[in-house]
C-alpha cells in the first residue's frame, strides 16, 4: 500500500503541549498509577486452594448444556443458528427429521469441541428455543482431545447435573403450539416486543 492510497485515512497527530514535551508530568503520572497498584489489594483467586465465587450463575459462561423439554427429550430443533453464530466454529450438528409428532427436526448428533470454544455465549443468544445454555461449571478438564469433544449425551448429562442448581433461563417459555391453537388470540395482550418467543 502506498502512502498516496486514497483508502488510507490520515489522522492528525495530537499537538503536544509543553508539559507533554517535557515528559516529566506524564512520567510522574504513570509512576503514581503503578505505585498505587503496587500496594493495593490483589484480586487473584488462588484457585485450587480457594474456590472462586460466581456472583450470578445465570450470566456465567461455563460448560455448555443441552436442555431437555418437559418430556425429557432434547429441546434442540437443529436449526444450526448456534453453529452459525459460533465464531470459533466449534459446534457441529447433524439435523434429521424428528421421530416425534410435535417436532419437525431434531439433532441426530450435536457436538461441541470444548477445546475450540471461546465461551463467548453467542450460541446461547442465538438459540431460538433456549436449548443450549452455558452453565456455571468452570472446572472443565480432560485427559485427551477426544474427551473434550462433548456429544449430545454428554451435553444432556450436563443439564441433568445442573438443572436443580441452575433452572433453565427461560422456564416461562410459552409451549410450542400446534396449528389448531395457533390462531391469533383475540386481544393484543402482549406488547409487540415480547410477542412470540
Amino acid at each position: 500500500m502506498q502512502a498516496t492510497d486514497p483508502d488510507i485515512q490520515w489522522v492528525e497527530p495530537p499537538k503536544l503541549g509543553l508539559g507533554e514535551r517535557m515528559y516529566l508530568p506524564l512520567f510522574l503520572q504513570g509512576l503514581t498509577t503503578t505505585t498505587k497498584h503496587l500496594v493495593s489489594a490483589k484480586v487473584t483467586v488462588s484457585y485450587p486452594d480457594q474456590e472462586p465465587e460466581i456472583d450470578n450463575p445465570l450470566i456465567y459462561r461455563g460448560v455448555h448444556r443441552l436442555n431437555r423439554d418437559e418430556q425429557g427429550r432434547v429441546k434442540c430443533v437443529a436449526c444450526f443458528l448456534c453453529a452459525t453464530a459460533c465464531p470459533a466454529h466449534c459446534i457441529d450438528i447433524l439435523g434429521v427429521e424428528s421421530p416425534w409428532e410435535d417436532r419437525e427436526k431434531y439433532p441426530e448428533s450435536f457436538t461441541i469441541d470444548e477445546l475450540r470454544c471461546i465461551f463467548c455465549g453467542m450460541c446461547e443468544q442465538a438459540c431460538p428455543v433456549d436449548a443450549i445454555e452455558l452453565t456455571s461449571l468452570y472446572n472443565l478438564t480432560g485427559r485427551s482431545r477426544e474427551e473434550m469433544i462433548f456429544d449430545k449425551e454428554k451435553l444432556l448429562s450436563v443439564y441433568d447435573a445442573t438443572k436443580d442448581k441452575e433452572p433453565m433461563k427461560s422456564a416461562q417459555l410459552p409451549p410450542v403450539t400446534t396449528p389448531s391453537t395457533a390462531t391469533p388470540s383475540t386481544a393484543t395482550s402482549t406488547s409487540p416486543t415480547e410477542g412470540g418467543a
Binding site: D102, R103, E104, P174, V176, T177, T178, P179, T181, A182, P184, S185, A187, T188, S189, T190, P192, T193, G195, G196, A197
Partner: peptide, 14 residues
C-alpha cells in the same frame, strides 16, 4: 418494523 398481531410460532402441517 413492528408486529401488530400476537403471533406465536407454530409447526406447519406437512
Amino acid at each position: 418494523p413492528e408486529r401488530r398481531a400476537d403471533i406465536k410460532p407454530f409447526h406447519s402441517r406437512r
